[in-house]
Nucleic acid binder design. Structure first.
Lengths: 333, 333
DNA sequence: CTGAAAGCGCTTACAG
DNA sequence: CTGAAAGCGCTTACAG
């Protein structure tokens, strides 16, 4: 059996109260008894039981993170940020993979609540009303990352997708491109789909280009779908000179297709991606893309949680994106 | 305040013992009282406090995972596997980023022990004696993933790096290559460095090739280091026709360098990587590489932990690797 | 079928 | 400076 505080007290010939005070660095004991108790603690290899502490303190120093897929680069970078600030503030983090499944999400929400976590980072897909209700009923500080809901009561942290897509499109236009295509995610994706399409459209009209369905292709953010999309696109309009892909993976699909077909990038076709995953800097040619500060989002999320725990007011925030210029785009004239 | 079991008992007019039995699905109550209590539970929104349960049951259903860097693709895939099997078995997982720092590792080990985790997955670099001592003193089931220590007492789960490197090299030799170079990680890396070099050497001598320092270059597993290494290598020996890179990232550095210099892959140079990260399938050309079943390792790790918790004997295991043939290598004659 | 009571391993007024 | 005691929110023999 592991030694408990009682064992220490008995061996040291003092009360558990005294041991507790010493362990927690409170006042109320002489240097002698402290040294003696510390010695016993060492001898016995005593370590306080956090579970018992958590129960009496009504505090677990634990937060939970819900992501749709742990193995994604997005989750990995987010977790890195979350863990950093959590550890800095003495919090430990539970990871939960929801698999984008509604039941798993609800299940985990319940579990986290029972485990008495003090905060939740929700980075799992669009926040439906169902999720929203479940979260509010928990009464646990929660922040939404890279997503949002129509209900404004929960703070979110994300990049403004529409603005970012606008910027990416405008970047291409300013490079002199006249036929700028877009490879989008699904229209019904209210986070990374529709808003980026709207941004693209708005940039085109602001620069007096007509909207043209021949310039649009749809994928599902994956490499393969990007490959197929560019094939279609070039069939519909061989004069496209630039394409904005709504994910780096799809952009890599484009690069790969072009490589196979002997279409030189950026000489014959410029491509800009979205996300700035590690892939982007290692592709050939290195990919120009929209950078999202994902790790930073994780850090901010935990900071927000901690503020909420203290009862401070917090607000939803758009985090700044930026365009990382690499070698997959060029100026045309 | 959140309702406790006492509140439920009071409102329902029964004892806490009865409520407890009902909540836990034990026997010992009539259908009537059950229905009544369940109704009260719903009305009050009662959820059992896991912390209190954990204390009396001396069981937390929690495991901890130590990784050197959360944002890596390796950690992401490992976590995916770990979470899957954990959740399947009603375990929740704490993630700990050690930053490859000794003090952080030791700190987290202590913390996990205080939090009463029931198992630890240690995926953090080479297991020094110091770590080994710390872990054994914890008396908590622990499995080492993708690493090992000289001390045999702790079960490990990894790919046999030497064999995998041997296979990669031999693959190239059997394709007819006569000048097969290697871009290795640091020699002093006892996990991913030296063993792979040894495998490479062994494959060469088994096929009657001389060892030649001109055929070796060293990097640190990163993209940039791969780029620099191939530059050096080609300077030392322009007749190299194939290279085995000890990581996919370094292999991508090679591809990138060759693209810039107009060296065609695989026509002029074959390259094989190691890891089979997502990068590999999305590169141009897609990268032939050594696949490690990382997610599977995570799954097996948790299964092993659970067995250990039950007092069953477990053993260290090498997991099978495989060579994923894509388009960056070709047969020469 | 049901409840009173002890106990899990701690912390914290309170009293001295 | 120190200890006895109550209590955190549960579970589980034990007795009826």
């Amino acid at each position: 059996m592991k030694p408990t505080i009682k064992d220490v007290a008995k061996h040291a010939g003092v009360s558990v109260a005294t041991v507790s005070r010493i362990v927690n660095g409170l006042s109320g004991y002489s240097n002698e008894t402290r040294d003696h108790v510390l010695k016993i603690i060492k001898e016995l290899g005593y370590k306080p039981n956090e579970v018992a502490r958590n129960l009496v303190n009504r505090k677990t120093n634990t937060i939970g993170v819900l992501v749709p897929k742990l193995s994604s680069s997005f989750s990995a970078r987010l977790l890195q940020g979350i863990e950093r600030v959590s550890h800095q503030n003495q919090y430990t983090v539970f990871v939960c993979n929801t698999d984008s499944s509604g039941t798993r999400t609800l299940e985990y929400l319940k579990l986290l609540s029972e485990k008495q976590v003090e905060g939740i980072v929700f980075a799992s897909k669009y926040l439906t009303n169902e999720y929203y209700e479940a979260i509010s009923s928990l009464q646990i500080p929660t922040v939404i990352v890279s997503s949002f809901s129509k209900r404004k009561e929960l703070p979110f942290l994300k990049v403004n997708d529409e603005e970012a897509a606008y910027a990416a499109t405008e970047y291409l236009i300013k490079k002199g491109h006249q036929r700028v295509a877009m490879i989008s995610g699904p229209k019904k994706d209210l986070i990374a789909g529709l808003p980026r399409i709207i941004g693209y459209h708005r940039a085109l009209s602001d620069h007096h280009f007509d909207l043209d369905e021949n310039l649009m292709a749809y994928g599902d953010f994956t490499y393969t779908s990007g490959y197929r999309a560019i094939e279609q696109l070039l069939k519909k309009d061989p004069n496209v000179t630039a394409v904005f892909a709504a994910s780096d993976e799809m952009a890599l699909g484009v690069i790969s297709y072009c490589y196979e077909k002997g279409i030189r990038i950026p000489d014959q076709l410029s491509v800009i991606g979205y996300d700035d995953t590690e892939l982007a800097q290692m592709s050939t040619p290195p990919l120009t893309t929209v950078h999202q500060p994902i790790q930073k989002m994780g850090e901010k999320a935990v900071e927000t949680l901690i503020k909420m725990g203290k009862g401070e007011k917090v607000e939803s925030r758009f985090l700044p994106f930026s365009i990382i210029e690499r070698l997959s785009t060029r100026t045309i004239r």
